[in-house]
């Protein structure tokens, strides 16, 4: 565990807590893509099946359980508890265009052709693009609440910090996982446009609003 990974994990944790707090306090899921959140629930479920097969540490296990649990709570909030506030008209990204190619790629490019390993690979690839329905929704409505922007910034930062973690691990531990690194780069690149808007607008007290 190095500092980049720890801060990355904390950033990921913070993103999830910000999102849950936003929904709970405002009693609303307005501006949140239910499709992205379903994809994240699929990501965590398929990645953390190793909870049943291997134990790494208390930290590792509790984070995995937290991520899986909160992803289902989030989906429940959007599609059940706060459903009247869910903006489905603007959440129109076609997720099959992500799931099908990502599933195919996981079958073709993986470390080992076994069920758990293919599901792990699938989750890594899917995570890299899972935010697209959310970014699509922001661009479609042309705006994002500040709290939603904070959520997206924390969520995007997490994988960017993992990139630093992988550079560190490559030099000091000889660890290198090409699948995770390539997917992590893709994931971080997708956030770049948003990072720019966040730094130039949200940090100066304005909310993100795009020209029509």
């Amino acid at each position: 565990m190095n500092i980049f990974r720890l801060v990355g994990d904390m950033s990921h944790l913070l993103a999830i807590i910000i999102l849950l707090m936003k929904m709970w306090k405002s009693r609303s899921v307005a501006g949140i893509s239910g499709k992205s959140q379903i994809l994240f629930a699929i990501v965590f479920t398929t990645r953390y099946l190793d909870l049943f097969t291997s134990f790494v540490s208390i930290y590792n296990t509790s984070m995995k359980v937290f991520f899986i649990g909160t992803s289902y709570v989030t989906v429940y909030f959007i599609y059940q508890h706060f459903k009247p506030t869910y903006d489905s008209n603007h959440d129109t990204f076609r997720v099959e265009f992500l799931i099908v190619p990502v599933g195919g790629l996981a079958f073709l490019v993986n470390h080992e052709f076994s069920l758990l390993e293919i599901l792990w690979t699938f989750s890594i690839y899917l995570e890299s693009v899972a935010i697209l329905p959310q970014l699509f929704m922001v661009s479609k409505t042309g705006e994002a609440e500040s709290i939603t922007s904070h959520y997206l910034f924390a969520l995007g930062s997490y994988r960017a910090l993992y990139l630093l973690n992988w550079i560190y691990r490559y030099y000091f531990e000889g660890f290198f996982d090409l699948i995770a690194v390539v997917a992590g780069c893709v994931q971080t690149i997708l956030y770049c446009d948003f990072f720019y808007l966040y730094i130039t607008k949200v940090l100066k007290g304005k909310k993100i609003s795009l020209p029509a």
């Binding site: 990974r5 994990d9 990921h12 990645r47 190793d50 097969t53 291997s54 790494v56 540490s57 590792n60 984070m63 995995k64 991520f67 470390h111 080992e112 758990l116 390993e117 792990w120 993992y162 973690n165 660890f175 996982d177 995770a180």
Partner: peptide, 10 residues
């Protein structure tokens, strides 16, 4: 080299 135990990351 790689095996599933390497997935100690989240």
């Amino acid at each position: 080299d790689h095996d599933h135990d390497d997935h100690d990351e989240l």
